[in-house]
Amino acid sequence: MSTRARPAATRLTASQSRAAAHRFPSDGRSAGRARAILRRQLLTWRIGGEAAHSAALLLSELVTNAVTAQAPPAPDIGVRFALSDGRLRLEVRDTSDALPEMKQAEEDEECGRGLVLVNALASGWGIDRDGTGKIVWAELAISSTAPEAHETPPRRLP
C-alpha cells in the first residue's frame, strides 16, 4: 500500500459528494468502457484538462488490475466516481482477495508499472477489504483554478 494512502475513515460519503456508480464485465474491454463513462461524467462535473487525463489514466490502471486479478469466469467489477471538497475519488471493486503489488518492472516487460503510475499521479490511493473482495481506490486533488471542460478560451481584444 502507498505511504500516501489515506485512512479509510476519510472515505467520501454519498451525502457529501456527487457520485456515480457503474458495473462492467470482467474482460479486457472494460477499461476503455469505464474511461468513456468517466470522461462523460467529468464533463458533467466541468472537470477537464490535465485532471481529466490523469483521472482517465488512473481509472484505466485500476480497472485493468481488477480484471487481471479475477479468474474467469469472473463476476462483474464495480466502478465508482465521487467528487467532493476538491477531491475526485475513483474506486474499483472486484471479488479477488489478491492484493495489487507495486513492483519494479524490467525495461522489456509489458506489465507491472500500473501501481507505480497510480502512486505517481494520485494524491492518495489505497485498498479497502470487504467480505467478498476489495476496493482499490485513488484520489486526485482537483484545483478550483483548473480549466473547466466547458470553459471558453479568453478572447483577444483588437
Rank of each mutant, 00 (worst) to 15 (best):
T13W: 10
L117H: 04
A120K: 13
T152W: 05
A21Y: 02
P153S: 02
R93W: 05
G124D: 14
T44K: 12
L43D: 12
E107I: 08
D27C: 08
S30A: 08
L12Q: 14
Q16M: 13
R87M: 13
A74W: 07
S123Y: 07
A149I: 04
A20L: 02
L117E: 04
T145E: 14
D108S: 03
D130K: 10
S60P: 11
T68K: 13
T152Q: 09
R23Y: 02
P153Q: 09
A34W: 01
R156F: 15
A122D: 05
S143D: 15
R11W: 06
T10L: 11
R46S: 01
D85N: 15
A98T: 11
E101W: 06
L115W: 15
A34G: 01
P100T: 15
M1L: 03
A51S: 04
T152N: 12
A20I: 05
L58N: 01
A19S: 13
N119V: 05
I142R: 12
A31V: 07
Q41V: 07
S15A: 15
G28T: 04
E148I: 08
R46Q: 03
L140V: 08
L157M: 12
R129D: 02
T152L: 10
I127M: 12
S84I: 10
I77E: 03
S84P: 05
D130V: 10
T68P: 00
A34N: 00
D85M: 13
D108F: 03
I127W: 10
D130F: 15
S60C: 11
G126Y: 10
A14E: 10
S26R: 01
I77Q: 01
G28A: 11
H22L: 01
L99Y: 00
C111S: 04
L57I: 07
P75L: 01
W45H: 02
K103M: 14
A105Y: 02
A71H: 10
G133V: 06
G78A: 03
E61T: 03
G126R: 11
A56W: 06
H150R: 12
G86R: 09
A21Q: 06
T145Y: 06
P100Q: 14
A36I: 06
T44Q: 13
P153R: 09
P72T: 10
R40V: 12
C111G: 01
T145I: 06
K103L: 14
S15C: 11
T152Y: 04
W45P: 00
W125L: 08
F81G: 00
A66M: 01
E61I: 03
L157H: 14
R155D: 07
L88S: 11
S26P: 01
A9V: 14
T64M: 01
A82C: 07
A36M: 08
S123I: 12
T64V: 00
A5W: 04
A9G: 07
L121D: 05
E91S: 14
S144N: 07
L38I: 14
E106T: 09
P72L: 06
T152E: 12
S144K: 05
I135L: 05
